[in-house]
């Protein structure tokens, strides 16, 4: 790890100010990606601005039609929230299966979304549920938020403050773990929404999380979903899974997610 200046503002406004004043700042949420990356000397920010002092970013509320989760809410808090379990049980289950207990107690939903790891779980839920990402500057639809692998629509000094999830009629997440890292080799989140079925796929795409309207159409037509429409050349290939295997798993996981949602 290289030397850096550490800041711990107590409000989002102060955090935004600290970001503006720094040369090459990084926002620290749960630190589950940033800190290992810095330890490996793959990132060398001049300033690290921790959001841990911003208590206004923590918390979960539900009004029956929308679940709102503060950006600094940990995975463990989401997993164990009675509100989330009641309104969107698939989201609570997803959070409860991220990483291990240590990761879940440090990692946050805002950090995960801002990082947009192509194998992370939350982007799939956020996109499939059609969530709204609330930032210090605006509100973004999930469809507009994820722009590519480790890329989002966030501007340099823009901080996620909360995520608003509309409560679906039903939803389920089927994840095939990378055996080593336990990230998603392929994860499919299915949500039955008032606008019809939405399917979001993580772990597989070269551009990060993506929707498959073809699979959504199959489900809407009452057909068993399959992955024949997925273009292999858009998928990742690595020592754990070829693009062909990932494509196959998308079909299997989509089928399982739809079956689990009931």
């Amino acid at each position: 790890m290289y030397e850096f200046s550490y800041h711990k503002p107590s409000s989002v406004a102060d955090a935004a100010q600290a970001i503006g004043a720094a040369d090459d700042p990084k926002i620290l949420a749960g630190g589950q990606t940033l800190l290992p990356t810095m330890k490996q000397r793959l990132a060398s920010p001049s300033d690290v601005i921790s959001l841990r002092g911003c208590r206004d970013l923590v918390g979960i509320s539900s009004d029956g039609s929308t679940v709102t989760i503060g950006a600094m809410t940990t995975h463990a808090a989401v997993a164990s929230s009675a509100d989330v379990q009641k309104a969107i049980p698939a989201l609570a289950a997803l959070a409860g299966n991220i990483g291990d207990a240590q990761v879940r107690n440090r990692g946050t939903i805002g950090g995960s979304l801002a990082n947009n790891d192509p194998a992370a779980d939350y982007p799939a839920a956020t996109l499939a549920l059609g969530a709204t990402i609330v930032t210090t500057k605006r509100e973004l639809s999930a469809d507009a938020f994820f722009t590519g692998m480790f890329e989002t629509a966030l501007e340099e000094d823009e901080i996620i403050t909360a995520i608003r999830f509309p409560v679906p009629h039903a939803a389920a997440y089927a994840k095939f773990d990378n055996p080593a890292s336990r990230y998603a080799l392929v994860g499919v989140f299915y949500a039955k929404t008032s606008d019809g079925p939405r399917i979001a796929i993580t772990g597989a795409g070269q551009g990060g999380v993506f929707r498959s309207t073809e699979i959504e159409d199959q489900i809407a037509a009452g057909k068993t979903p399959d992955s024949s429409s997925i273009n292999e050349s858009d998928l990742n290939a690595d020592i754990h899974a070829s693009a062909a295997y990932r494509k196959h798993l998308i079909g299997v996981m989509a089928k399982r997610a739809v079956a689990a949602a009931g």
């Binding site: 990378n178 055996p179 080593a180 890292s181 990230y183 020592i239 754990h240």
Partner: peptide, 8 residues
């Protein structure tokens, strides 16, 4: 497979 991300 040089880390636990890839070595199972």
């Amino acid at each position: 497979s040089g880390s636990y991300m890839d070595y199972c």
